[in-house]
């Protein structure tokens, strides 16, 4: 934080609307949620106790973590490959990569989820094509299960994984890569033992962003999971709008927010916010 006092006041003024909005739209309602979690249906920590013992809640938590982990691994790996092309490719390659990264942002998450249903369902494009060429006789179960959820989420999250990686790759000193090759290292070896380790902060940032996003995913798992692959956000929705069991729903929300908060704290210990954009 440099600058004179008036500079800092100016910065504070510029940030004030966002802060106010965050307090009014998130912090205040969240306090209400915390209150529900310890008052409904009866005051006390009973809902948290139930959370720790309820096998359904636990299986949803474990599934959510598993899906989030797989989605993170696949998204970051795919984003890494795209980003290498985007940042270090030829001008023509860069244009193509940029197009692939930006287009998904223009299409709504709902449209994309239904697009995947159209592709992956039993009578969808992929199954009918595989059947028509005689490769399979029965349709493959590609959707309404974890696989469908993972495909849809990965597709949604890859572009978000790109930016921290791009920032890390852009700030990398080309001479270090030249030095590695000049010292006798093949392109492959230079990539794995110099380029990848040097973009470590980008990988961490990218992975944490995708992971945190995946934990709270709602629309994509609800549509592509078809009720059979419920994740935490959907469970909260079911508890609050269908059971209705507001206390448990609220307790799950609080645990999720605390968990994500802890992950963000970890993220900022390793990576400066500036490196994420």
């Amino acid at each position: 934080m440099r600058g004179t006092l008036s500079d800092r006041m100016g910065a504070a003024l510029l940030m004030a609307p966002l802060l106010l909005f965050l307090v009014l739209a998130y912090a205040w309602p969240f306090l209400g949620v915390v209150k529900w979690s310890v008052t409904l249906p009866t005051p006390g920590l009973g809902q948290y106790g139930a959370l720790a013992t309820d096998p359904l809640v636990q299986s949803v938590f474990i599934r959510t973590l598993r899906i989030a982990l797989i989605v993170t691994l696949v998204s970051v790996a795919a984003a890494y490959a795209i980003t290498v092309v985007w940042v270090r490719g030829s001008p023509a390659q860069r244009v193509v990569a940029e197009f692939c990264i930006l287009v998904p942002f223009w299409i709504s998450v709902l449209t994309r989820a239904f697009g995947w249903v159209a592709l992956l369902s039993n009578r969808g494009l992929i199954n009918s094509w595989l059947q028509s060429i005689g490769f399979i006789s029965e349709p493959l179960a590609l959707v309404r299960n974890e696989f469908g959820v993972i495909v849809g989420m990965t597709h949604f999250l890859i572009p978000f994984a790109v930016f921290p990686l791009a920032s890390a790759m852009r700030s990398l000193d080309d001479r270090v890569l030249l030095a590695a090759r000049g010292l006798g290292s093949s392109r492959m070896r230079t990539f794995w033992s110099v380029f990848v380790p040097m973009t470590r902060s980008g990988i961490i940032g990218s992975a944490l962003i995708v992971f945190v996003f995946s934990l709270g995913f709602f629309v994509t798992p609800a549509i592509l999971g078809g009720g059979r692959s419920v994740m935490i956000a959907e469970l909260i929705y079911l508890r609050i709008f269908q059971s209705p069991d507001w206390g448990l729903g609220a307790a799950i929300s609080v645990v999720l927010v605390l968990f994500v908060g802890a992950l963000m704290a970890l993220l900022f210990r390793y990576v400066r916010p500036k490196q994420l954009v």
Partner: peptide, 20 residues
Amino acid sequence: RPAEQRAAGMVFQGYALFPH
């Protein structure tokens, strides 16, 4: 012949050490 097969020792401006 590509650089990695020539393997001339090279010291760069700014050293270009492997930071990790």
